[in-house]
Design a protein around this nucleic acid. Structure first.
Length: 580
RNA sequence: CCCCUCGUAGUUUAAUGGAUAGAACAUCGGCCUUCUAAGCCGAAUACGAAGGUUCGAUUCCUUCCGAGGGGACCA
């Protein structure tokens, strides 16, 4: 709809002022502030400088021409000119009819665009380490990454979900060392993965402390590290392998609960050899020797110096990330690869990407790092209440506990139904909290109420969706019908019109959120829709509509709203509930 | 010392260079015999400081103040 209006305006402008230097990208057609209509354009103000005329005069001329265009006439009910030179549009009933029909016809596919058609993108997110706990940072990565995946899918891309996890290095040696030393409870083997991993994480902490404080332990841990790299067939390696398996199973369980399944998982150990090779291949050109290590000196590119191979000849993470990048493209023929990590790695990835582009020009612009901020409790990274590092499972458990305490669930539901409601509400709250902030900014939350159940929150949107579901069922049961819903709709009140206008903005919003990789835009949008729906709900009864046309119109509007909320929540990785 | 990010109501935050800076929580005041009150309606409170560019700056540039992150063998 926006494109249609845009085309018409551009044509008018070209006809009126033949030799204008107006840059088309400067012309904006945007959602107008509520009191000024639905869409607005700045074309007259941009034109003013070029044709040397008062923007208000120009706006009037364009308005005049627009009102004689037949396509514009059918979509737009009213055009207004406002100072300093905006042209504002109000949608027509026909426009509403068309959009509602599209939404209901296309259903779950509504809002998908063709922008990325035929293109492949890989999104890497999650990135936990084996042999230790999955932290709140991994949770943030997982939730954010899933949303990036969904946004790219909505843009029409084929998306490959990838995970890169650390399964080698000193941290795994530390916990392996402590696990061997520790006395295991007799029933240990029968424990589920989550309990085992809790135990392993304690071992990791002990191992890390011993490494710091005890030279004997340090030597033993270094030996274990060597055995792991060499795959020596001894107790050390066997233990490492066992813990690795539990870790991976556990990771998959945790991520599955968050709604994440990967298409490709890259263990760090898999790129180890490639990393060495790739650095050696480009030594002298991109890399040089410095103090025994092989480094990339980034000064000429405005970057720091980064070590790629240590003086012992081991690849650092930079080399592994480099090898990983190359591997991704060779395996999947990608058009784009996205890596999400926390912000502290921003400079680091600048260097990795720079080096990647030096290796092959074809990578230019195709590897993108998306940094996200911390999830902070009262502005701090740690929690005294939960122990030093905040674990992913603790956060999820807290959210569930909060949901359980504060939601009033119909007592007639079975315990399974209740559990499902608690799970989904908690995850909706958690995911919405994370995604409603701009990616690169830190999130501060208050542990007492860190997921909100009302106001600007995921549960509020779920609740609105359920209200819709409930009315639609009730009205349909009483013989209300939506047959022939694609024409003869009539919206009289502002509540109806504003809701319909908001629905009309969905596809523009998805497009923008996708291009900018900004799920918070979706959050803001969904909240606006839900609010407008609730206003409509209070003021415009469906059951008590004055006539059949009104009843049908309102029912269709409610149904379309439900579909939009569902689709939008889907982009955030949030599942809907049918009742609660 | 150098580089990056960020400073918006009491708190958490939004605003592709545009219109009266938009919300939520908390606070105060209304609305359930009526489609799920996790809701609706209303009140009050904010752009760190100073310059500059622009018809127009919260947004872009400079300086200062404040917070966080990064800067060779960790990631």
């Amino acid at each position: 709809m926006k494109d249609q209006i845009r085309k018409i305006i551009l044509k008018i402008v070209d006809n009126l002022w033949e030799k204008n230097d107006l840059k088309k990208s400067e012309i904006e057609i945007n959602k107008a502030p509520e009191k000024f209509g639905d869409y607005s354009t700045n074309v007259a103000m941009k034109l003013a400088r070029i044709v040397k005329k008062n923007p208000l005069e120009i706006a009037e001329i364009i308005k005049e021409k627009l009102s004689t265009d037949s396509v514009a006439q059918s979509l737009i009910e009213k055009i207004e000119v406002a100072k300093p030179g905006f042209i504002n549009f109000y949608f027509s009933q026909k426009a509403y009819e068309k959009i509602l029909a599209d939404i209901l016809k296309q259903g779950d596919r509504y809002g998908f665009s063709k922008l990325g058609q035929g293109k492949k993108v890989m999104v890497e997110f999650g990135q936990p380490n084996t042999h230790k706990a999955i932290t709140v940072g991994h949770l943030k990565s997982a939730v954010s990454g899933l949303s990036v995946v969904k946004l790219f899918e909505a843009l029409g891309y084929e998306v490959i979900r990838a995970n890169f996890f650390g399964d080698v290095g000193m941290q795994v040696a530390k916990s392996t060392w402590a696990m061997i030393k520790k006395e295991l409870p007799s029933e240990f083997e029968d424990w589920k993965n989550d309990k085992k991993m809790e135990f392993v994480n304690e071992a990791y902490v002990e191992g890390a402390n011993a490494f710091k404080d005890n030279p004997q332990a340090e030597a033993e841990i270094r030996k274990i590290n060597k055995d792991i790299y060499a795959k020596t067939d001894n107790k050390n390696y066997q233990w490492y392998q066992k813990i690795r398996e539990w870790s991976i199973e556990y990771q998959n369980e945790v991520f599955a609960k968050l709604g994440i399944e990967y298409d490709r998982q890259y263990p760090e150990s898999e790129v180890y050899q490639d990393a060495i090779k790739i650095v050696e291949q480009h030594q002298g050109k991109i890399f040089e020797e410095s103090q025994g290590a092989i480094v990339y000196k980034g000064k000429k590119d405005g970057l720091h110096t980064w070590v790629f191979l240590t003086k012992e000849g081991n690849p650092t993470y930079s080399a592994k990330d480099l090898a990983l990048a190359v591997k991704k493209f060779s395996e999947y023929d990608l058009d784009l690869a996205i890596v999400t990590t926390s912000v502290e790695q921003t400079d680091y990835f600048k260097a990795v990407i720079k080096v990647l582009e030096k290796i092959d020009k074809n990578f230019e612009g195709k590897y993108k790092h998306v940094p996200f901020g911390w999830l902070l409790m009262n502005g701090k990274k740690t929690s005294s209440r939960m122990g030093k590092t905040i674990k992913c499972v603790d956060i999820v458990a807290e959210a569930m506990q909060l949901a359980k305490e504060k939601i009033a669930i119909d007592k007639d539901y079975s315990s399974e139904q209740k559990q499902e409601i608690i799970n989904k509400v908690a995850l909706a709250g958690l995911k919405f909290l994370i995604l409603s902030h701009e990616f690169h900014k830190d999130i501060n939350y208050n542990p007492e109420e860190f997921i909100k159940l009302n106001g600007f929150s995921g549960p509020f949107i779920l609740y609105s969706y359920i209200r819709i579901n409930s009315i639609v069922k009730k009205v349909s049961a009483k013989g209300g019908s939506v047959s022939g819903w694609d024409d003869n709709l009539r919206f009289e009140s502002d509540h109806e019109k504003q809701l319909a206008s908001a629905l009309l903005m969905y596809s523009d919003t998805v497009l923008r959120a996708g291009i900018e990789i900004a799920p918070h835009i979706i959050c803001n949008y969904l909240y606006e829709v839900a609010q407008k729906f609730n206003s409509f709900y209070e003021n415009c009864s469906i059951q008590k509509a004055e006539n059949e046309v009104q009843k049908k119109s309102r029912l269709v509007l409610a149904m379309a709203t439900g579909q939009i909320l569902k689709n939008g929540l889907g982009l955030l990785g949030i599942e809907t509930l049918e009742k609660m």
